[in-house]
Amino acid sequence: MSTGHLTIDLSAIADNWRALDAKTNVETAAVVKANGYGMGAGRVARTLADAGARRFFVAVAEEGAAVREAVGPGPMIAVLSGHMDGDTDLIRDNSLTPMLNSVDQVLRHVESLPRQSFGIQLDTGMNRLGLEPEEWAALRDVALKQKPALLMSHLACADEPDHFMNQRQLTAFREMTDGLDVPRSLAATGGLLLGADYHFDVTRPGIGLYGGRPYEDAKTVVRLDLPVAQIRDVAPGESVGYGNTWTAQRPSRIATLAAGYADGLFRALSPGIKLFDGADAYPIAGRISMDLITVDITEMDPDRKPEIMTLMNNLQGVDALADVAGTIGYELLTQLSQRYKRSYIG
């Protein structure tokens, strides 16, 4: 192969959903935005629908249309960005449920699609999307007469269980919604793991489905194999890659792999990560460049000439890579290049 090969375990995604679902006594939805966190929204959504998911969350209406094509007419597909200007036809034609975020969006939706399902997003302190408490108080009675499908908010610090913001937002959400006869949702993956107080009627895990923190018990979803383009001998004192950041201290063997930051493998990953040949790990030598990664395989059996090496597997998952790069698993997963060949198991 000439490009990396991304293997996506659909059965692991389904098992992660089932395991998270088993942690609650309420409905468990699934977040499949950003093309299913880079895994392929259609394939992921069909898998999760087969597993029992009946609500899906996407970021924008275009994503919702793709998921509708994949799962058919039954499940609810909620659009987190709401009813944006120009989205009316997509929302209507694909039976999407926009989560309305502002007074303008409420007016746009009621005027253009008065019989179309909708939900409302409330701002409980994140100051990103949603009606603020004063706006909700002014609109609440009118909005409730239109029978919204869901009231939701989003936690800012759910991946830090002891953060004061979690309780503050929970209190705000209850103050805005207690006593209303409408399904409610506050918890994504992190909120789900905070416990029953945060579950309400619907939870909506995202990153936990795909093997990432804060769901530490998640099954591994992604394996990334990279092709070896060349193996060369390097003499002591010779350097490898841009900037002369790695210099051989002994006679060395260097494998050059066909992948780089153009494939979503950040340059910041250069120090600290390993490439695997089976269970044996080998360090990167020098900097990751646009299309190439150099690996020190001096300790490998000199008669062995691997054709592929593995970057992501159950020994080095997405969060381990993200930690090295100073980022989060979400970013790394969603940046995985379309240049990779993708295949699915399970």
Score class of each variant (00 low, 15 high):
26 V>S: 02
186 L>G: 04
231 I>L: 09
279 A>P: 12
285 A>F: 02
312 M>Q: 12
8 I>K: 00
156 A>T: 08
86 G>H: 05
42 G>R: 14
238 E>A: 14
344 Y>M: 08
247 T>V: 05
297 I>D: 12
66 A>L: 15
152 M>E: 11
173 F>L: 00
336 L>S: 02
223 R>E: 14
343 S>K: 02
277 D>L: 10
83 H>N: 01
203 T>L: 08
301 D>Q: 09
326 G>T: 01
194 L>G: 04
122 L>Q: 00
53 A>C: 09
84 M>R: 14
28 T>Q: 10
81 S>F: 13
262 A>G: 09
253 R>G: 07
187 A>T: 01
228 V>Q: 07
206 G>I: 01
125 G>S: 00
70 A>D: 04
223 R>C: 14
95 S>H: 13
54 R>V: 12
108 R>V: 07
192 L>V: 06
37 Y>L: 01
185 S>A: 13
144 L>D: 10
71 V>T: 01
102 S>V: 06
252 S>W: 03
237 G>Y: 03
112 S>M: 09
201 D>L: 09
28 T>Y: 06
268 A>W: 03
19 A>W: 10
301 D>E: 04
163 H>W: 07
310 T>C: 10
74 G>Y: 13
51 A>I: 01
16 N>K: 04
329 G>P: 05
92 R>V: 11
260 G>T: 06
212 G>D: 10
153 S>W: 07
211 G>D: 00
85 D>P: 10
294 T>P: 14
71 V>I: 12
102 S>F: 02
40 G>L: 05
250 R>K: 12
331 E>F: 15
155 L>D: 04
282 Y>D: 07
33 K>F: 11
230 Q>P: 15
270 S>K: 00
163 H>R: 03
325 A>G: 05
338 Q>W: 12
68 R>C: 03
183 P>D: 09
341 K>V: 15
71 V>A: 08
246 W>H: 00
141 D>F: 13
273 I>D: 03
39 M>N: 12
106 V>E: 09
13 I>D: 10
211 G>P: 11
199 H>L: 11
166 N>K: 06
191 G>S: 05
10 L>N: 08
255 A>I: 05
173 F>M: 08
225 D>Q: 06
217 D>E: 12
280 D>R: 15
108 R>W: 04
195 G>D: 06
301 D>C: 04
303 D>S: 11
255 A>H: 07
315 L>N: 12
7 T>K: 14
184 R>A: 07
316 Q>E: 01
173 F>T: 02
263 D>C: 05
195 G>C: 03
227 P>W: 11
332 L>C: 00
213 R>N: 13
216 E>W: 13
220 T>M: 07
36 G>V: 03
43 R>V: 15
90 L>V: 08
330 Y>M: 14
109 H>N: 05
57 F>L: 14
177 T>L: 05
55 R>E: 12
337 S>W: 01
251 P>W: 15
249 Q>V: 14
91 I>Y: 04
212 G>L: 10
107 L>N: 14
54 R>L: 06
30 A>Y: 03
